[in-house]
Amino acid sequence: MKTMMNVQQKFLSYKNCPGSAMLRIMVLLSAVLTFGVLLFLILHIVVQGLPHISLSTFAWNYTTENASVTPAIINTLVITLLSLCFAAPLGIFSAIYLVEYAGKKSRFVEIIRITTVTLAGIPSIIYGLFGMLFFVVSCGLGFSLLAGSLTLTIMILPLIIRTTEEALLAVPDIFREGSYGLGAGKLRTIFRIVLPAAVPGILAGIILSVGRIAGETAALVYTAGTVAQLPGSVMSSGRSLAIHMFTLANEGLYMEQAYATAVILLLFVVLINAFSYYLAKKFVYA
């Protein structure tokens, strides 16, 4: 497919089809544009933000002087952990039911598939509204990390269900048949044979959801609130890193710190991606 042609030959072959040459230029131009914009975006953030990161940016307590990100990072971690605690078992169990129990063509699977696709397509602002109406007001949780986490649980559920489902489907049936053949029950087969084989796919889904949680703003402003201090418990309100940046930038008084926070967020995204690559690689070779 990739035969080495020198430039002249290439030019000759395109001379007869100007359409092809045009397309080739379009393809290259688009790629340059896409990655150019990405590079520019990242450089812009880093150049604006990096000079404003100092030790005091990571001070334990938030004050108006240091605009510390530490409480925000802790809040983000708490929200992430809590959401995963709810969403991961729910999502994985649903996927198990869909793949291992329900028939492939059953009506129920169809319904669930439609609802997960619907959930995945709902904009985060609607989750925010719903979370505020339901968890904050109706359930009486108030603005709290818990309310925020529950809202995000619903938000990342479809992602986990879908990726787990795909991972389970990718486990060859021979594994299951072998296990049954040795006399294991269905439950044992699922937990001992199928799930371990599907771990990399499931982890990929979980990492993707961590990324979504870290970047979320609209759904959390109305549920977790914007308190900048360290959280006392899961019932206290707190701002995640993305909201921290949003509030810092909003009144125009802390723009430099907002950019510094953006750099940290960016770093977070890069780390998550690197981690998922590492996992994928490790499991593929193993």
């Binding site: 004050t63 914007t226 006392g232 309100s237 009144e251 008084l253």
Partner: peptide, 28 residues
């Protein structure tokens, strides 16, 4: 959100007077 920046400063100043208290600031 317009009052919040000064309220943040006030809360900090208050803490030096009364370290026993915990003030939570919600920016809405």
């Amino acid at each position: 959100s317009s009052v919040s920046p000064i309220m943040e400063k006030l809360a900090e100043a208050y803490k030096t007077v009364n370290p026993n208290a915990k003030l939570e600031l919600q920016v809405t």
